[in-house]
Design a protein around this nucleic acid. Sequence first.
DNA 1: GCCGTCATCGATCGAAAGGTGGAGCCGCGG
DNA 2: CCGCGGCTCCACCTTTCGATCGATGACGGC
Lengths: 210, 210
Amino acid sequence: MTTQIRLLLADDHPIVRRGLRAVLETEPDFTIVAEAATAEQAVSAAAAGDVDVVLMDLQFGDGMSGDQATAAILAQPGAPRVLVLTTYDSDADIIAAVEAGATGYLLKDAPPDELGAAVRAAAAGRSALAPTVAARLMNRMRSPSVALSRREIEVLDLVGQGLSNHDISKRLYLSQATVKSHLVHIYAKLGVDSRTAAVALATEHGILRR
Amino acid sequence: MTTQIRLLLADDHPIVRRGLRAVLETEPDFTIVAEAATAEQAVSAAAAGDVDVVLMDLQFGDGMSGDQATAAILAQPGAPRVLVLTTYDSDADIIAAVEAGATGYLLKDAPPDELGAAVRAAAAGRSALAPTVAARLMNRMRSPSVALSRREIEVLDLVGQGLSNHDISKRLYLSQATVKSHLVHIYAKLGVDSRTAAVALATEHGILRR
DNA sequence: GCCGTCATCGATCGAAAGGTGGAGCCGCGG
DNA sequence: CCGCGGCTCCACCTTTCGATCGATGACGGC
């Protein structure tokens, strides 16, 4: 017989927690030891120690985000595995979660049996990725990793807010020449030739927050 | 004693349906008569007739959207009430649902007891709005409703994808003059003076999809 | 010390975008 | 019927942006 897998559910939606509980409790080898409605609660519950796998949502209403909580949990000795379970699959979310050390990444529209399989995989240290997520990761590996510098992101963010070069130069205490220079570098790195295209691509790739 | 309230759950996430079922079945006067995993299923299930309240998600993976399904359901004689239950609260989603004739609008992070109260309110024909949703509606009433025409939205959408005026004119089989003309009107309606600012504002207000 | 990256600034020039004003067509409703 | 709003187009002008050169200093790794 297999050993029991002890689970922690971290999601800010009570309804989702109830649904997960209903789905997972039908499996005899799963035990739900705790629930967390905030990322902070998840971190302290995981620190208590008697957890094998954390089912972690990425979006919490306020406070710490799911990927931050994931990193905090995994930073502790004897940390459990973290299986990210979220509604949508933006590039930024995925890479943030993977970088934080998540063992797997599932979407909430996954069928229940797939969920159980992913939990067992995570408990065994194997990674479980939803197909669309895997595809996105491959995509990211193939494309030359677009690494903008901090300053460039700062400029591009203001561009995305609709500011002109002149506005940006005042906001950042720069000359317009510098702003333009940053933009030239940004365009080169992203392979585009206009501010709107740069913003569109950066948003799509999760470099910018909406 | 009160009469039974017959419910239809429409959500593409199995986990959410399980959670809703778990939460709502504890109420003695609720009966869940059907579930729907797509908007189309929801429409046909509601057409069957033995439903009082539909709990409707707005985001479905593909096919018909929740607000379209809401409109389709309410178009039929003897239609049930539709209570929208969704994860997030963009302006566009809210107005689309309200215009489609939804009786109430709840967020999934609502506590379970609030959900029960909203269902009873909907069954009685009273409307139930989450506080943040109500606030947004008030906000929209106050601010001059920024109604862009279909063509203007089409143009603005392409602008948001990073296309130049020339690209847009070719894509829509227009002259650049026409594109510029649409943009001038867009800027006037939104109170901005650049394409990036227009895209930023429109995205923020939910006029554009990300 | 040298090299690469980042950040800063400058000048110039053509292209794109924005501002202004006008015009014709069509459908819908008072 | 006639006005109004949406959609289409045109011309002219100003401003902004992007492209292409260039340059300097700071910082860190090899």
